[in-house]
């Protein structure tokens, strides 16, 4: 028994354990998602997060300890973002043909995301610093955190809201757009990238490669536009 405790104490501190567990949780989540016929609610990010959070809770592992292992996965977000240049390049003809529709969708999606987030939160009684923190929630995390800080929000709260927005968008996009009868993968992907950044883009790639390419463009452009719009809108309010 003592030996088991000793082994656990050693492993629990080693990055290897939590890196491995993160990958296993994701493989399990993908498997479950496939078993559920890729039902939108069976989103692999959502399932893996629930599995890992439960595990951290049960083993009383603090998040920083977990992140020491998981950071190697987290780090790959940067190179993966750069890799979005490939689907953009592959869809060049399509992208050229849809510059104006994309500009319109970017403006509409970005404005709606910021204004409705702040508006709805205000209606629900949120005020002050917390209200400002939700404004950039649809932008990719590094931009959203910077914007939040600049407009007087709480970056740590914004970080949580950004991730939840991504998961929400990934879960609701497919059933909602199917119900609306939207079948254009360019429009679907782009709107999801604008509204739900990288997690929405990851979902779009799982559904359709054209949707994924357009989602990546939407995410990148909204990162830039939110950085410009959110401070302006907050100044006007």
């Amino acid at each position: 028994m003592d030996e088991a405790v000793e082994l656990w104490t050693y492993l629990a501190r080693d990055p290897l354990l939590w890196l491995t567990v993160t990958l296993l949780a994701y493989v399990t989540a993908e498997r479950l998602s496939d078993l559920a016929g890729r039902h939108p609610l069976a989103n692999p990010v959502l399932i893996a997060v629930i599995l890992l959070s439960a595990l951290l809770l049960v083993t009383r592992t603090p998040y920083p300890t977990y992140f020491e292992g998981a950071q190697f996965v987290h780090f790959m977000l940067g190179p993966a973002t750069v890799a979005l240049a490939l689907p953009l390049f592959d869809n060049l003809t399509r992208v050229r043909r849809t510059l104006l529709p994309m500009a319109a969708a970017l403006l509409a999606g970005s404005l709606t995301a910021i204004l409705s987030a702040v508006g709805l939160a205000w209606i629900f009684g949120v005020r002050g610093e917390t209200l400002l923190s939700i404004a950039p929630k649809s932008a990719t995390a590094p931009v959203a955190l910077g914007v939040s800080e600049a407009i007087g929000g709480q970056p740590s709260l914004t970080a949580v809201l950004v991730i939840l927005t991504g998961i929400t968008g990934a879960v609701m996009a497919t059933p909602m757009l199917n119900a609306l009868g939207i079948r254009d993968w360019r429009a679907r992907g782009f709107a999801v990238g604008v509204a739900a950044h990288g997690i929405g883009t990851a979902h779009a790639f799982r559904v359709n490669s054209t949707a994924g390419a357009f989602a990546g463009i939407g995410m990148g452009l909204n990162a830039v536009l939110t950085a410009v719009l959110a401070p302006l809108i907050v100044a006007l309010l």
Binding site: A105, G109, G125, V126, T165, M176, I182, D184, A191
Partner: peptide, 28 residues
């Protein structure tokens, strides 16, 4: 503010996706 924030987040994300899709298709 938990419930209020989650409510705002779900509503706003849905609205933003719908606004983006229809703006794209309209201009297309």
């Amino acid at each position: 503010n938990g419930l209020a924030l989650i409510g705002a987040l779900i509503g706003s994300t849905a609205l933003a996706i719908v606004a983006g899709v229809f703006a794209f298709l309209g201009v297309a």
